[in-house]
Design a protein around this nucleic acid. Structure first.
Length: 582
RNA sequence: GCGCCCGUAGCUCAGUCGGAUAGAGCGUCGGCCUCCGGAGCCGAAGGUCAGAGGUUCGAGUCCUCUCGGGCGCGCCA
C-alpha cells in the first residue's frame, strides 16, 4: 500500500537476516532507522541510514555494514539498483513498474487512500475555537478554528478516534460584563437614557437585538431593579444569542463540533469541587501565599493566603491559585474540572488549540492534566500565532475599543470558505501569518489555493473531454488497465510525488501539522501542471490520444489517481476540490 | 527579571522523529499560447540558515550562551 513502508520492511528484513547469520548482534534498536526519498534524485528513489545508525551498536564500520545490507537488499522485488554511498547510506532505485502499480492502489482505495492506523484507535479530544461567547467570531479566531478542524480531519484519517470539542466560557466575569452591556442597551431601548457605554463593557451592536428580545418578552420589568436580579438572566440571554451567532460563523467555515461543554454547567454540577477533592486526596492542594509577580510593579499587591494547586510538582514555575480572594473559583479551577471531564469521557490524548497569548497558561494546564489523569492522559497544547491583517499591503489594526473589528463571517463571505481555510493552513501554527484581505479577494495567483484547485479542475476537464470522446473513465475500470505506456520522466515524477501521500499523512499527523498538506498539494499540483504543459510542446505526451486508446486509458488512470490524491488532501483541509474554475 | 514562541533568498515562508550539493511562491530578468483550460510552463540571478561554542560519522534541525523580535507573568478569561 505504501511504498515507503514496504521499503522499511525490506530493510528490517535485511537487518534480521544479518542478525540470523551472526553478522549483527541481536537486540538492536531499529527505531532510529529512517527511510526517505533523498533530496537529490541522483541518489535514487529511496535511501536508508540503517548502516549509519546501527554501526556503533554493531561495532562495525558504517560503509562495511552498508555493503552487507546492500547485499541483502539486492534482488528484492521491484528494486533494480542498490548503491552504497559514503558515509554509509544505502540508496535504492525502484522499477518504474512499482510506481505505476500505485495507480490501481489509489483508484481502489479512493477516498481512503492515505488512511493509516497511526493512532490505533486512540481516543483524542481536540478542543479548538472555544471563543468567549461575548461576541461573534472575529478573523483572528479563524486561524485556530481552521487549524483545529483540519487537525481533527487529519487525525481521524490517521486512525485516531477524534472528538471535536468547544468549551463555552460562560461562567466568568466577562459574562457579567456582557450582562451589564445588554442591560445598558435595554435601558436605551426603553428610553431610560443611561449615557455612554461605560469603560469595560461591550459596545457591540450585536447585543442590541438581545436587549430587544428581552424588551419584547419582559417589557420594562427589569428597569430600575437591582443588578443581582437581572444579572444572570441577562447574561444567559447574551450567551445564548452569541452562541447561536458563533455556530453560524462556524457553519460558514464548514466547522462542526461534536461536543459543546458549558463552563457554567460544570460549575453548577459541582464538578470543580469534585476535581479539587480528587487533587486534595493526592496532597496537591494547599492554602498558601504566593510571592508577588516579578518584573511588574503592582501598587495594590497584598500577600493573601489562597487555595493553591501544587503545579510546581509537575514542572510549573509557581503554584497556581484556585480561589480568588473574594472566594470565587478561578478560571483555572474551572479548567481543572473541564479537563478532568474530558479525561473521564475517555480521551487519553487531549489537544488544546489556543491563541499565542495563552502561552503562559500551558505549563500549569499540563501539570493539571498529569495530576488529574494520573499520568495516563497527555495534554498537547498547540498555540496559534497571530494573523496579521493587511488591506492592499497596508497593515490593518483591529481595535475593539474603536469598534474596528473584522468579523470572521464577513471575511469568509467575501473571500470564500475555501480560500480562507487554505490560506490559514499555509503556515505552521507557531509562525505568524500574513493575511491580505485585498490580495485574497483579487483571487490572484498569489493564492496557492487556486493553483491546487486548478490542477484538480484541469484533470476534471480532461475527463469531460474523455467522456465526450467515448473513453473509459470509470475509476474501477481504469484500475485494471495496462500501464506500461507511462514511461516519460515527467509522468514517473508525478507518480512518485503521488505515492508520497501516505507518508505525508503519517508525518503530518505525528507532528500535528496539517499545514504540510497544503505544501504537499502545491508540489503535487506543480508536477501535474508541468506535465500538462509538456503536452503542449510534445503532442505525444497529451493525455487524450485519438489514435492510441491503450495509452490514453493508462494516462486517464494516472490522472484519476492524481485527482483522487488532490481531492483527499483538500478534503482533509476542508477545502472543496472544485471541478471547474469560475 | 523570569517563562514560552520565533529569527532561513529583496519580501512572505517550507525544510521529512538530525542525513548527502538548503527549497517554493512573490518580486526582478529572459523565454513558451494554430493544439486536452496560460489562474499554466521553462530558464536565470539571488544564502556566512541572526552570532558563538558544544554533541554527532553527519546540525537549518539537538544542547548552552549572546543578540534581535513577539507573547505572557496573583484574586482576567
Amino acid at each position: 500500500m505504501n511504498l515507503f513502508a514496504d521499503f522499511r520492511d525490506t530493510v528490517a528484513a535485511a537487518v534480521a537476516a544479518l542478525q540470523e547469520r551472526g553478522e549483527l548482534p541481536p537486540d538492536l534498536d531499529l527505531e532510529r532507522i529512517s527511510v526517505e526519498p533523498p533530496r537529490d534524485p541522483a541518489h535514487g528513489h529511496m535511501a536508508t541510514n540503517a548502516a549509519l545508525v546501527l554501526a556503533r551498536a554493531a561495532r562495525r564500520r558504517p560503509m562495511e555494514l552498508a555493503e552487507l545490507l546492500a547485499g541483502e537488499i539486492t534482488g528484492a522485488e521491484g528494486i533494480i539498483e542498490v548503491r552504497v554511498a559514503p558515509p554509509g547510506f544505502v540508496n535504492v532505485r525502484l522499477a518504474d513498474e512499482l510506481w505505476r502499480r500505485q495507480i490501481p492502489v489509489v483508484l481502489r482505495a479512493g477516498a481512503d487512500y492515505g488512511r493509516c492506523d497511526l493512532g490505533r484507535g486512540r481516543p483524542v479530544n481536540d478542543e479548538y475555537c472555544s471563543a468567549n461567547p461575548t461576541g461573534p467570531l472575529h478573523v483572528g479566531h479563524g486561524r485556530g478554528t481552521v487549524y483545529g478542524d483540519a487537525l481533527a480531519n487529519l487525525l481521524d484519517f490517521a486512525g485516531y478516534r477524534v472528538t471535536r470539542e468547544y468549551y463555552i466560557n460562560d461562567g466568568g466575569a466577562q459574562i457579567e460584563a456582557m450582562a451589564r452591556s445588554v442591560h445598558h442597551r435595554y435601558r436605551e431601548l426603553l428610553g431610560d437614557d443611561p449615557g455612554p457605554m461605560p469603560e469595560g463593557l461591550y459596545p457591540l451592536e450585536e447585543l442590541v437585538p438581545v436587549a430587544k428580545a428581552i424588551v419584547e418578552r419582559d417589557g420594562d420589568r427589569w428597569l430600575g431593579r437591582p443588578e443581582e436580579e437581572w444579572l444572570e438572566p441577562f447574561g444567559r440571554a447574551g450567551v445564548e444569542a452569541m452562541m447561536v451567532r458563533i455556530r453560524e460563523d462556524l457553519a460558514a467555515l464548514g466547522v462542526r463540533h461534536d461536543v459543546f461543554t458549558s463552563e457554567r454547567e460544570l460549575i453548577a454540577a459541582g464538578r470543580i469541587e469534585e476535581a479539587i477533592a480528587f487533587l486534595e486526596e493526592k496532597g496537591l492542594v494547599y492554602t498558601g501565599t504566593l510571592p508577588p509577580p516579578k518584573g511588574r510593579t503592582m501598587e495594590d499587591w497584598e500577600p493573601t493566603p489562597q487555595l493553591l494547586f501544587r503545579s510546581t510538582a509537575f514542572g510549573d514555575d509557581v503554584d497556581r491559585p484556585l480561589r480568588r480572594s473574594n472566594g470565587a473559583w478561578t478560571y483555572f479551577a474551572a479548567d481543572l474540572a473541564y479537563h478532568l471531564d474530558k479525561i473521564r469521557r475517555g480521551a487519553d490524548l487531549l489537544i488544546d488549540v489556543w491563541g499565542a497569548d495563552h502561552g503562559g497558561y500551558v505549563k500549569r494546564m499540563q501539570a493539571a492534566v498529569q495530576a488529574l489523569g494520573e499520568g495516563r492522559a497527555e495534554l498537547v497544547v498547540k498555540l496559534c500565532q497571530l494573523v496579521h491583517l493587511y488591506a492592499g499591503g497596508e497593515p490593518l489594526k483591529m481595535s475593539k475599543r474603536a469598534g474596528r473589528i473584522v468579523w470572521l463571517r464577513d471575511v469568509v463571505e467575501e473571500v470564500g470558505r475555501d480560500v480562507f481555510r487554505f490560506i490559514m493552513l499555509t503556515r505552521k501554527n507557531d509562525a505568524p501569518l500574513e493575511f491580505d484581505l485585498e490580495k485574497v479577494v483579487e483571487q490572484s495567483k498569489d493564492n496557492p489555493v487556486f493553483y491546487v484547485q486548478y490542477a484538480h479542475a484541469r484533470i476534471c476537464s480532461v475527463f469531460r473531454n474523455a467522456e465526450e470522446a467515448g473513453c473509459e473513465t470509470d475509476p474501477a475500470a481504469l484500475a485494471e488497465v495496462p500501464l506500461d505506456g507511462l514511461r516519460d520522466p515527467a509522468e514517473l515524477d508525478l507518480l512518485r510525488q503521488m505515492a508520497g501521500w501516505p507518508r505525508l499523512v503519517e508525518g503530518a499527523a505525528r507532528s500535528f501539522e496539517p499545514h504540510r498538506i497544503a505544501f504537499y498539494l502545491h508540489d503535487l499540483a506543480g508536477a501535474f501542471h508541468a506535465l500538462w504543459t509538456r503536452g503542449k510542446e510534445e503532442p505525444e505526451l497529451r493525455f487524450l490520444l485519438a489514435g492510441n486508446p491503450g495509452l490514453t486509458a493508462a494516462r486517464l488512470a494516472m490522472l484519476a489517481a492524481v485527482r483522487t490524491v488532490i481531492a483527499n488532501g483538500l478534503r482533509l483541509m476542508g477545502v472543496t476540490p472544485v471541478e471547474e474554475m469560475h
